[in-house]
Each structure stands twice: as structure tokens, then as C-alpha cells.
């Protein structure tokens, strides 16, 4: 007679974490800050929808700019995902801080991804028909992903500075100042390149590297309570 293989400690921990995550999802959804998502989504979509509706026939650079505006406001909204006004209470629960924060971030990330994709579709529609096929989905998505991860990492840093309560107060100014500074960089160091630029691939490898670095930093900052 066959018996089930004995469960290892690691497997048990994973299953327990999975069950906890599912159990936490409902409360996390109820606690999700909605104003940042609503405001950010409205700004991103309306900014891209207006030229699309007017049939502006934009160049690729301008279409990419609309998409980047969407990426910035989505990153700003995501930056508030980890805010937890009840951190003093939730901090003592027997749930790992990283799991708690991942559960809070995932729904916001999902909505953010939908908003950004819709913005990108509208931005592409606002571009002139002859250049639409050249719309650089991959590169712009990498930039959006990197900005979002930067926002989350800064939010995790903000949590450490505010007793686990207000990550957004650090993330939003941080992301904005970094984006403005990046936009002001001299041409030879530019990171927001026009599509088709000879350095497009190289710069997007840099964006991917940035994403990896901030992801690692964010996880390290978020895995423990302040």
C-alpha cells in the first residue's frame, strides 16, 4: 500500500504562505488606497485619449511621451500601495511583512498594468497611421515596469522612515524628482530616448538593470518591519 510522501518543512511553509496570501487578499483589497489609482488612471487615460480622439496623427516621439506620462502616474499610484495606517497593529500579526506587502501590492500592480496598457493603446492610436507599426511596446513597457518598481522600492524605504505607515509620501516625490532629473539629462546621457534612436536597445538594457536593482532593494527593505 502506497502512502503519500512526507511533506518537507519548505513545502509546508509555501502552502501556508499561499493560504495566508489568499486569506489576506480580501482585507488587502478593501484597504487598497483608491484615490491614487483613480486619479492616476484618469490623468493617464485622459491625456492619451484626447489626442487619439482628435486624430492628432502624432509622431512616434510624441506618442511615446503620452505613454511615458501614463507610466509616471501609474508609478505614482503604485507608490501608495504599501501605505498602512494600521501598521502598529498589523506589525504584531504572525504574518511575514514581505508577504503582507506583496499581497497589498499585487492588486494595485494588476490595475496599474491594465491602466498603462490602455494608455499605451490610446497613445498608439494617437500616432500617425504610417508609424503605428513602429510603436516600441517592449521598450516603453520596460520603462514603465522600472518606474513602477522604483516607486515600490521608494515606498518600502518610506515605510521604514514612517513606522510602516506612509510609503507614498516618500515614493511620489522620489519618483517625480528622478523622472524630472532624468528628463533634463544632456543628450548624450538621455534615458528617455525617441523611438528608433540608435542607443534605444542599450538604454533599455539600462532600464532593465535599474528594474532589477530596485526590485532587489525593495524586497530587502520590505521583508522586515521598521
Amino acid at each position: 500500500m502506497l502512502s503519500a510522501p512526507p511533506r518537507t518543512a519548505g513545502t509546508a511553509r509555501k502552502q501556508s504562505a499561499g493560504r495566508l496570501a489568499v486569506a489576506l487578499l480580501g482585507p488587502a483589497l478593501r484597504q487598497t488606497p483608491r484615490t491614487p489609482l483613480l486619479l492616476g488612471g484618469s490623468v493617464a487615460l485622459s491625456t492619451a485619449a484626447l489626442p487619439a480622439a482628435l486624430g492628432a496623427g502624432l509622431g512616434l516621439s510624441d506618442a511615446a511621451l503620452l505613454c511615458r506620462v501614463g507610466a509616471v502616474v501609474v508609478a505614482l499610484a503604485v507608490g501608495f500601495a504599501l501605505d498602512d495606517r494600521a501598521a502598529r497593529t498589523t506589525g504584531v500579526l504572525p504574518v511575514r511583512p514581505l508577504l503582507r506587502r506583496v499581497v497589498r501590492a499585487v492588486p494595485v500592480l494588476a490595475v496599474g498594468a491594465v491602466v498603462w496598457t490602455a494608455t499605451a493603446v490610446l497613445a498608439r492610436a494617437a500616432a500617425a497611421p504610417e508609424v503605428r507599426s513602429l510603436f516600441p511596446w517592449g521598450g516603453l513597457a520596460t520603462e514603465a515596469g522600472a518606474l513602477t518598481v522604483v516607486a515600490l522600492a521608494l515606498a518600502a524605504l518610506g515605510l521604514r522612515l514612517t513606522g510602516g505607515e506612509q510609503g507614498g509620501a516618500t515614493a511620489a516625490p522620489g519618483v517625480l524628482l528622478l523622472v524630472i532629473a532624468a528628463a533634463l539629462l544632456p543628450d548624450r546621457f538621455a534615458v528617455f530616448l525617441p523611438p528608433g534612436h540608435p542607443h534605444w536597445t542599450g538604454v533599455h538594457l539600462l532600464w532593465a538593470g535599474l528594474l532589477g536593482v530596485f526590485l532587489t532593494g525593495g524586497v530587502l527593505l520590505a521583508r522586515t518591519d521598521p
Binding site: 488606497p33 484615490t35 491614487p36 486619479l39 492616476g40 490623468v43 491625456t47 511621451l65 506620462v69 509616471v72 502616474v73 505614482l76 499610484a77 501608495f80 506612509q166 507614498g168 509620501a169 511620489a172 516625490p173 519618483v175 517625480l176 524630472i180
Partner: peptide, 18 residues
């Protein structure tokens, strides 16, 4: 009183400037 309003306003002013 939401903390996201000011950053969004910065984005709006940035879009206007661009």
C-alpha cells in the same frame, strides 16, 4: 488631503510644460 494630489499636479504641470 490625499497625498497623491500634489504629485499628480506636478505631472499635470509637466505635461503642460512639455
Amino acid at each position: 488631503t490625499s497625498g497623491v494630489v500634489a504629485p499628480t499636479a506636478v505631472v499635470g504641470l509637466g505635461v503642460l510644460t512639455f
